[in-house]
Amino acid sequence: MANVIETRGLVKRYGDLTAVDNVNITVPEGTFFGLLGPNGAGKTTTLEMIEGIRQPDSGEALVLGQKVWPRNRALLPNIGVQLQASSFFERLSVEEQLRCFADLYAVDHSRIDAMIEMVGLQEKRKTRTEDLSGGQAQRLSIACSLIHDPQVVFLDEPTAALDPQARRNLWDVLRRINDEGRTVVLTTHYMDEAEILCDEIAIIDHGKILTTDTPRNLITGLGAAYRILVTEGALSAEEARGIPTVESAQATDGTLAITTHDPSPVLTALAERDALQGLQVTGATLEDVFLTLTGREYRA
Rank of each mutant, 00 (worst) to 15 (best):
A2Y: 08
E6K: 07
R13K: 11
G15R: 07
G15F: 02
V23D: 01
V23W: 06
N24S: 02
N24A: 00
I25H: 01
P28H: 03
E29N: 02
G30C: 06
F33Q: 03
L36C: 07
P38N: 09
G40I: 02
T46C: 04
L47K: 00
L47Q: 00
E48N: 11
G52R: 00
G52W: 06
G52C: 07
Q55R: 14
D57E: 06
E60M: 12
G65K: 12
Q66Y: 11
R73D: 13
R73Q: 15
A74D: 13
G80V: 09
Q82I: 09
L83R: 02
S86D: 07
E90K: 12
R91E: 15
V94W: 01
V94A: 13
Q97E: 15
L98T: 05
L98S: 05
L98F: 10
D103H: 04
D103I: 02
D103F: 12
A106Y: 14
H109D: 12
I112H: 03
A114V: 13
E117V: 00
K124E: 09
K126E: 01
T129M: 04
D131Q: 15
G134L: 11
G135S: 08
Q138F: 01
C144S: 10
S145P: 02
L146Q: 08
Q151G: 05
P158D: 12
T159I: 06
T159F: 03
A160V: 10
A166N: 10
R167M: 05
W171S: 06
V173K: 02
G181L: 14
G181M: 05
R182A: 03
T183W: 10
V185I: 15
L186M: 11
T187E: 05
H189W: 04
Y190C: 12
Y190T: 13
I196G: 02
C198H: 00
A202S: 15
K208Q: 12
T212Q: 14
T214D: 14
P215L: 03
L218G: 07
T220L: 11
Y226A: 11
R227H: 14
I228H: 01
G233R: 04
A234N: 13
A234R: 09
E239H: 07
A240C: 08
R241W: 03
I243G: 11
T245F: 08
T245W: 04
S248T: 11
D253F: 10
T260V: 00
D262L: 12
L270T: 08
A271F: 04
E272N: 15
R273Q: 05
Q277C: 10
Q277D: 13
Q277M: 05
A284P: 05
F290P: 07
F290L: 06
L293M: 08
T294Q: 03
R296M: 08
E297T: 15
R299K: 13
R299C: 06
